[in-house]
Amino acid sequence: MDNSRSARLRRVLVAAVAAVLGAFILIPGAAAAAGTGAITGYGGKCVDVSGANTANGTKVQLWTCNGTNAQSWTVGTDGTIRALGKCLDVSAGSTADGAKVQLWDCNGTGAQQWVANAARDIVNPQANKCLDATGPSSADGTPLQIWTCSGGANQKWTVPGGGGGGTTGFVVSEAQFNQMFPSRNSFYTYAGLTDAMKKYPAFATTGSDTVKRQEAAAFLANVSHETGGLVYINEINTANYPHYCDYSQPYGCPAGQAAYYGRGPIQLSWNFNYKAAGDALGVDLLNNPNLVATNSSISWQTGLWYWMTGTGGAGTTSHNAMVNGQGFGTTIRAINSIECNGGNPAQMQSRVNLYNQFVGILGVPAGGNLTC
């Protein structure tokens, strides 16, 4: 692990953090529940294509169930949800609350990817938001939109095939996880990781099966490097502990000057990162930073929080780097850019070696752009 103060400085987040999602168990790609039929939701109404119109941009709405083709949806093995030969689509690929949902020609974009899960949410991973009945209202003609997942009844759906089977759906099995981390600290549990994934439904569920596994391998390779194979919970170099308090922040360091050292799978450090992570996850980490070292799920959540939202020196998140084909090397730049461009080639290569090992376990190619 690189425990230098300069390395931690590069972990300042510059983007707004996504709102916390309601708890649910993921089923990847909606494909686990593939089938054709009605999708029912709020007020017992059906998801309906307005007027059975097949024009691009046609409103998708709630309507009294009537058994017509306008209410017959196919949950595809490719993560799409289709009716009348077209795809359920988020208008303009928006990720904003209130973006309308419509019918559109199928085009393979993230605006048309959906994940149905055991908690009966239908999530658009690109936006990290849930299919939502506007209002909330169950009146005929109520338009559907995406909205921050809240667990509300207007975001609960029953899809053809059942929409979930009570498994984690993670592309890494527990046996594979144990193979990757044979000497791991018992604190870093598989159950803690899969529970943490409830906060970020786009993680390892976006794109093809190969991309999903590559992303999982990339995340686990980076955290393995940061923690010595999931052995270390707390930063090793205790001399660094007092360095991670930025008193220029208005909230200061209420847990103490030496309280914000690296903890957890991504070695979260600095008071401003504990504050930002805590705000995103709904946990007061600023006042209780040691939760990252004592609660396995929260610890994993901080790792996924940075993976999904932190850009570092890459200009993009690690998640986006993997799903958009920029390669593993870009994740290194997002997590610790000082290892790149010859800054610390041995540390960079350590991450690459772990990634190659983990994609081998998962049976997928590594892809290109492995170094930075």
Results as ranks from 00 to 15, higher is better:
235 E>R: 02
236 I>T: 08
236 I>L: 14
236 I>W: 08
236 I>Q: 15
236 I>K: 15
237 N>D: 15
237 N>A: 14
238 T>V: 10
238 T>K: 11
238 T>P: 06
239 A>F: 07
239 A>V: 12
240 N>D: 13
240 N>V: 04
240 N>W: 00
241 Y>P: 09
241 Y>G: 10
242 P>F: 00
242 P>I: 12
243 H>T: 15
243 H>I: 00
244 Y>I: 02
244 Y>F: 15
244 Y>T: 00
244 Y>C: 02
245 C>H: 04
245 C>Y: 05
246 D>L: 05
248 S>R: 13
248 S>M: 06
249 Q>A: 07
249 Q>V: 07
249 Q>E: 15
250 P>K: 06
250 P>G: 09
251 Y>M: 10
251 Y>G: 09
252 G>V: 13
254 P>G: 03
254 P>M: 07
254 P>I: 10
255 A>M: 07
255 A>L: 13
255 A>V: 12
258 A>L: 15
258 A>C: 03
258 A>T: 08
258 A>M: 13
258 A>R: 06
259 A>W: 04
259 A>M: 03
260 Y>A: 00
261 Y>G: 08
262 G>A: 14
262 G>R: 05
263 R>V: 07
263 R>I: 06
264 G>C: 05
266 I>K: 07
266 I>W: 00
266 I>A: 14
266 I>R: 01
267 Q>L: 08
267 Q>V: 12
267 Q>P: 09
268 L>W: 06
269 S>I: 05
270 W>D: 01
270 W>A: 02
270 W>F: 02
271 N>W: 05
271 N>Q: 14
272 F>T: 10
273 N>W: 01
273 N>F: 01
273 N>E: 11
273 N>D: 13
274 Y>S: 03
274 Y>H: 07
276 A>D: 09
276 A>Y: 01
276 A>I: 04
277 A>H: 04
277 A>R: 00
277 A>K: 02
279 D>A: 15
279 D>P: 03
280 A>E: 00
280 A>Y: 04
281 L>K: 03
281 L>Y: 01
281 L>T: 03
282 G>P: 09
282 G>C: 12
283 V>G: 03
284 D>G: 11
285 L>Y: 02
286 L>Q: 02
286 L>I: 03
286 L>E: 00
287 N>R: 14
287 N>I: 11
